[in-house]
């Protein structure tokens, strides 16, 4: 029971971290909270389901294509909707909230109300610690999540693009003085934020099939992780994701599975009482 909750917590926590990274990136660079974050996750799930199941594509190709399409979709949304709202945080919040509702209803119309499940990548189960059998698909999802997080980390630390992102999130005006086209960077980082939601979506949808309104819980959890970890902090997302994943699964295993999401909120409130800027946050709020 204990080891199962631990394994579940770590596996789910990694994916939470991934979903939260996208939110955190967009908040850090653009000061925009994307309320429709979860809907990009769901969209990627639908894409990957239809590419693989309806069109018969290889599952990996279907996942990559889905993430790519959501990246482009995100960039288009930035240009059409978000760009006009810079400097007015409330306005972008309302706009992305409306977007999230519009997308949910569109999904309902286009994809129908029933859960869609892309194919599993692997079959069977593995005996963990000699204690219990754990689904291989979940283990693979955890591995994929770790790979994407590692790629994001390397991109942030080692590439010019990552350096530009970090510089811009620290001082947008000075980054522009250093030759960064911050308008183009906004478009790219919003797209990248959506693509990270999409990555989480394609990784997790074989385990938790997507539904039109399933994005709300995803976005909510991502926001909890970001606030817990500290706005705009990479390690905050990773650690925050793991904490929420573990707390939810231990709570569900030992207290009651009905209150799964409540446990995360309780931890969040305690952490914010002690550290208002989050675990790794150093920005004033």
């Amino acid at each position: 029971m204990f080891l199962l909750a631990l394994t579940n917590g770590l596996v789910i926590g990694i994916i939470y971290a991934l979903a939260a990274l996208g939110v955190s990136l967009v908040v850090g660079i653009m000061n925009v909270v994307n309320f429709a974050h979860g809907e990009f996750y769901i969209l990627a799930g639908y894409f990957s389901y239809h590419f693989a199941n309806t069109l018969g594509m290889n599952y990996l190709a279907a996942m990559m294509l889905s993430v790519g399409l959501v990246l482009i979709f995100g960039m288009i949304i930035e240009v059409l909707l978000i760009r006009k709202t810079y400097g007015d945080d409330l306005y972008s919040l309302i706009l992305t909230f409306i977007l999230s509702i519009v997308l949910q209803n569109t999904y309902l119309l286009v994809f129908g109300p029933y859960p869609n499940k892309p194919p599993n990548w692997v079959k069977g189960a593995t005996n963990v610690f000699g204690q219990f059998y754990y689904g291989n698909q979940r283990l693979a999802a955890c591995g994929a999540g770790l790979v994407v997080i590692a790629i994001v980390y390397l991109m942030l630390k080692k590439t010019w693009f990552g350096r530009m992102l970090r510089a811009t999130s620290q001082d947008r005006e000075v980054a522009e003085l250093n030759g960064v086209n911050t308008t183009a960077l906004n478009m790219l980082s919003f797209g990248l934020g959506c693509a990270l939601a999409a990555a989480a979506g394609v990784i997790l949808s074989p385990i938790f099939p997507v539904t039109p309104t399933g994005g709300m819980a995803v976005a909510l959890t991502a926001f909890v992780v970001v606030v817990l970890g500290g706005m705009g902090s990479f390690w905050g997302c990773v650690v925050g994701g793991l904490i929420i994943g573990l707390v939810e699964n231990f709570g569900a295993a030992f207290i009651s599975s009905g209150y799964r999401h409540v446990f995360g909120f309780i931890i969040l409130i305690f952490v914010l009482l002690v550290r208002p800027a989050g675990l790794f946050g150093n920005r004033e709020i």
Binding site: R163, M164, A167, Q170, D171, V174, A175, L177, N178, G179
Partner: peptide, 26 residues
């Protein structure tokens, strides 16, 4: 052209070397 802004405005959470590299972005 290049501007050294009032109040210096270095990237506080980046290392010295990374600040310099950022200046070389163009």
């Amino acid at each position: 052209l290049a501007l050294v802004p009032e109040g210096r405005r270095v990237y506080k959470e980046m290392s010295v070397i990374e600040n310099l590299k950022m200046g070389a972005y163009p």
